[in-house]
Amino acid sequence: MTTIAQVRQAVRPLIQQHSDLASIGRFVMIKPVRHIWRAVFIESTIDPHAFAPRISLSMLIPAKSRGVRGFGQRIFRNIYGPRNIRSSDWDIRQPETIKQMLDMIENEALPKLRTINTFEDYFAFISGFRFPIDYTGHIQYLEVYIPAANGDLELSRKNLERDARILADIKEYRPGFYRALVDGDRFEIARILHEWEAATVTNHKLEKIWERTPFPLEL
């Protein structure tokens, strides 16, 4: 299994070339982080000599635990030709392979990620993915949290009430947010959103590249 130290060594040339990038664990993050992280996550594989990089996008709300890696597609080695079973593996023993990986991150992934600046951008990008079945509910949660963060509490409540499963989940696991949303308490919702963001930042060690900024709800 490739180590974080090997990841940092591999991506160092990319970090040195771009002032808006930072190496955080296995992430290459675009900074500053405001409400949404935009990154490439360098996964390890069962092959101790291989990387498997992929785009990583995630809102900071609700609070994300340490293990969350965000959503995004794999960056395949032979993206311009026929795919094969090893197409996602990048061999750390081959400098030319690592260079190709960094070139593809720079020319394919980063330009896409840099266009994502708002919740609407994030929603549009995520909506185009074909998730495994475990992630099919993600869009429904976004349809609750994004309108709330944007200040459209009526739309947030409407979207929440139309999905019994999402409603039950948020009532049980996000009771403070649920009550504030029902009551139309914009100040409490803003407080909760900032609390969630701060927890995500702490869990993922993003303190040095995070900028605390107001939500559209507060503006």
Rank of each mutant, 00 (worst) to 15 (best):
K158S: 12
D152H: 02
F119S: 08
D152K: 02
P147M: 14
Y135F: 13
T97Q: 14
D91K: 02
E120N: 11
A124I: 09
E154W: 02
E161S: 09
Q94H: 11
F123G: 02
E96P: 00
L110H: 07
I98P: 10
S88C: 11
G128V: 01
L110F: 13
I146P: 01
I126W: 04
I139Y: 07
R157A: 08
L113S: 07
T118I: 04
D89F: 14
G137C: 01
E143Y: 09
I98N: 02
K99E: 15
H138I: 15
I126P: 00
N117C: 07
D91V: 05
A109T: 07
K112D: 07
Y135G: 11
K99P: 00
I105E: 04
F125T: 13
E108N: 10
A149E: 10
R83T: 04
F123P: 06
I79S: 11
E108P: 00
F119C: 04
M101R: 05
Y145L: 09
S127L: 08
D103M: 10
W90L: 00
R130T: 14
S127W: 03
K99D: 15
L160K: 03
E154Q: 11
K99Y: 13
I146L: 13
T118C: 03
D152E: 05
I146S: 05
A109G: 04
G151K: 04
R114C: 06
I126V: 14
D121F: 08
T118M: 00
P95A: 15
E120I: 05
K112Y: 13
Y135A: 13
P111S: 08
I105K: 01
W90Q: 00
D89Q: 15
L102K: 02
Y135L: 15
S127H: 09
P111G: 03
D163L: 03
